[in-house]
């Protein structure tokens, strides 16, 4: 059984946010109006965090793209009252939009603030032109439910179907996410962390590797690489 994970090389990342846009397009993440954005309601499954150290002119800003960390021990699924968020056999943490009651306990419980709530029926707000571009493989979310990065799980489903028709299993390197596909500096590597052949698994062994908020014991499957501290 594969254990899907992601390695993000911060030393390669240029903070261009192509991953953010690609994710938005791939997963039908709704655009919101400026007014809503100012109220801090933007939904962004892949989000660019930034931190500035020091004062001008000796200031330095570090960037960190943050998808859902896909923890092996996720704090969000512990608190869900209705099994609307769960972890599957391959380690992907999912959200059942049709079951979620919108209590936002998982939003409050996630230490990485990676879960987003639909304050309005955002999909209905989209302009016709962007509704026509909707990815048919990903369901759009109604108002009042929580959503988050799924590691492009719909791609895996499709690949599995295809592989089954061809009488084989999903090949190493075949399943990738929208963000890793699009990254111009190839900073994002996606793969099976339990397969020693996969590039992602090899990269996690790097001395530059670290995980976010490791002390919390959430065991994220998104690993970052950097030489800086």
């Amino acid at each position: 059984m594969p254990r899907w994970g992601m390695v993000i090389d911060l030393d390669k990342c240029t903070a261009c946010q192509a991953c953010v846009v690609a994710c938005q397009e791939e997963n039908n993440v709704p655009f919101i109006e400026h007014e809503e954005f100012r109220k801090s309601r933007a939904i962004s499954w892949m989000h660019m965090l930034s931190e500035t150290h020091g004062e001008f002119p000796n200031a330095e800003t570090q960037f960190l793209p943050r998808p859902c960390l896909q923890c092996d021990n996720p704090p969000c699924i512990k608190v869900c009252p209705v099994r609307a968020t769960y972890i599957n056999d391959e380690g992907i943490v999912g959200q059942v939009y049709g079951r979620c009651i919108g209590c936002r306990f998982c939003v409050a419980g996630c230490p990485y603030t990676a879960k987003y709530f639909n304050w309005y029926p955002y999909y209905e707000w989209q302009p016709e032109s962007s509704k026509r571009r909707t990815n048919p493989d990903v369901s759009v979310r109604p108002k009042g439910v929580v959503e988050k990065c799924t590691f492009c799980h719909h791609r895996l489903m499709k690949l599995k179907d295809k592989a089954a028709l061809e009488g084989r299993s999903v090949r190493e390197g075949e399943f990738t996410t929208a963000c890793s596909d699009v990254c111009p500096s190839k900073a994002i590597t996606f793969g099976d962390l339990d397969n020693p052949e996969s590039k992602a698994a090899q990269l996690t062994a790097s001395p530059r590797a670290f995980t976010l908020l490791k002390d919390l014991g959430t065991k994220p499957k998104v690993v970052f690489l950097t030489e800086r501290k």
Binding site: C80, P81, V82, R83, R99, G102, V145
Partner: peptide, 26 residues
């Protein structure tokens, strides 16, 4: 007030259908 706070109060019966006793809300 908990019901008012829910995004989907229409699905409150999911608490019985799919209730997880591990959740403090239960």
């Amino acid at each position: 007030n908990i019901l008012i706070d829910l995004g989907r109060p229409d699905r409150i019966l999911n608490m019985f259908l799919y209730g997880r006793y591990q959740s403090p809300l239960l």
